[in-house]
Nucleic acid binder design. Structure first.
Length: 434
RNA sequence: GCCGGGGUGGGGUAGCUUGGUUAUCCUAUGGGACUGUGGAUCCCAUGACUCGGGUUCAAAUCUCGGCCCCGGCCCCA
């Protein structure tokens, strides 16, 4: 016997049925926003990831050398692949490009709650537009797809910030090692206020600077109001440019009716890699789970990959945390397989069953029949396990009169109908599950 | 890589503190009662102590180590 690899999952038919429902709901929502589905290979050249990443991220790649001596990695995220495609095909694409994908990703990490080694992640991105409306569109899409899955503003919180604003603010304070400061800010939620201050002092900030930073970080709250507040408090040229675009995002999210979901939170930093502007995260309100979404603007990645300047904004949502949150709220779909009809047989009725199967399947019904030689009673039990909506009993005795028995397995009601009738007009007797 | 808690039939569990008959119960699976239908019920069967070393007359139980699972740290693209 073999065991599953650590951090991977098997999906049995009933589990798969539930996942399929969730995924198709997500796809539907995203496509309503005008995003088109794409896919890219599961393996890429190692350099695609090493070019922009630090040691620790490279350590967590599933990488190997192939027979041609190339270093290959399973994709740990989708964005580099999508940007690779975009850069190589930029000439033929008309912008803006709105793409989505639900790739399987692999990261060699220690599995924890909501974190696996192999998982799915919805990615949506808009390329080619620097306009705040692109940011708005992406955030709206995130909120809408969660609502379509059954969440509301009491479950989730979208926390928005902006990298440039934080950087400008720190520069105004005369802080030049802001990369270090960002790292500390990213940790602030996990540690006490005192430890936070000590950490900042540890990278040689003075009291005034530390207090200013604290005050700035505490300016979180209602998105639009916080932005208005900041625009009064901070007048620097760099900052006001950022504030202008944030205000547009905030206003437009309000106009779309999403203000209840949104919090402005300058402590959101999101790693350190390629984000260049607006950044956001989605959390459950109780903070029971890790972040459900992470995303933001990354306007420089295409250039970094040797292409032209292509502004970009997008996010990723892993399926692991989503499933945990949906189960907590009891909105994860029932794990149940379904078919339209099961045909149970008594005696030698092979010919009639063949006709039925062909006709019903040609009419797009999901139909199955006994191939185990079971007695009627056990066939009925099996039909229920398949989640059959209806049962058709085809027996020699009824057939002498040209009849078969149709039973609705939900209500238990049973009626005799003509064999030729159901063969020629199945829709008159049956309805489809989906 | 580090820290903590665990591993008993396919799934879920009792037993472990205090070592001692055939390892508990639920469920699942297969068959039967039932000769054309009780999605019921009952009966029968299948099937487990994570692996290895140690202590002991005797280990699921005590002990050490490996493996795996769960949770946390690091990291989180």
């Amino acid at each position: 016997m073999f065991e599953r690899l650590r951090g991977t999952r098997d999906f049995l038919p009933n589990e798969m049925a539930a996942r399929k429902k969730v995924f198709s709901s997500i796809k539907k929502s995203v496509e309503e926003f005008g995003f088109f589905e794409t896919d890219t290979p599961g393996i890429e050249l190692f350099e695609l990831y090493s070019i922009k990443s630090g040691e620790e991220i490279i350590d967590e790649l599933y990488a190997f050398e192939d027979k041609g001596g190339r270093m290959i990695s399973l994709r740990p995220e989708l964005t580099p692949s999508v940007v690779r495609v975009l850069v190589s095909r930029a000439k033929e694409l008309s912008f803006p490009v709105k793409w989505y994908s639900i790739p399987r990703l692999w990261r060699y990490e220690r599995p924890q709650s909501g974190r696996l080694r192999e998982f799915y992640q919805l990615n949506i991105d808009i390329f080619g537009s620097e306009d705040p409306r692109a940011d708005t569109e992406v955030i709206s899409c995130a909120i809408k797809l969660l609502c379509d899955l059954g969440f509301d503003e009491s479950d989730i919180e979208v926390r928005i910030s902006d990298r440039r604003m934080l950087q400008e603010f720190l520069l105004n304070l005369g802080i030049t090692n802001y990369q270090d400061v960002l790292k500390k800010i990213d940790k602030r939620e996990k540690i006490s206020e005192r430890d936070f201050k000590e950490m900042l002092a540890g990278i040689s900030l003075d009291h005034t600077q530390i207090n200013e930073i604290e005050e700035f970080l505490n300016s979180k709250g209602d998105f639009l109001k916080s932005i208005e507040g900041l625009s009064c408090a901070y007048q620097g040229e760099g900052i006001s440019k950022v504030i202008f675009s944030l205000r547009k995002i905030a206003q437009s999210l309000n106009d779309r009716g999403y203000e209840k979901f949104i919090t402005f939170d300058p402590s959101i930093v999101r790693g350190l890699d390629y984000y260049t502007g607006m950044v956001f995260e989605v959390h459950d309100r109780k903070r029971e789970f890790r972040a459900l979404f992470g995303g933001g603007r990354y306007d420089n990645l295409a250039e970094l990959f040797g292409g032209e300047h292509i502004p970009a904004v997008g996010f990723g949502m892993g399926d692991a945390v989503l499933e945990l949150m949906m189960r907590r709220k009891n909105i994860w779909p029932e794990e149940k397989v379904e078919i339209d009809l099961f045909i149970a047989t008594i005696g030698d009725v092979e010919k009639e069953v063949s006709k039925l199967l062909t006709s019903l399947r040609n009419n797009n019904f999901k139909v199955d029949c006994d191939i185990m030689g079971r007695n009627l009673s056990n066939q009925i039990k099996f039909a229920n396990k398949l989640g059959a909506k209806s049962l058709l009993i085809v027996g020699e005795r009824d057939l002498n009169e040209g009849n078969v028995t149709l039973r609705d397995l939900e209500s238990g009601k049973e009626s005799k109908i003509s064999l030729n009738g159901i063969i020629s007009e199945p829709s008159k007797y049956l309805t489809k599950v989906l």
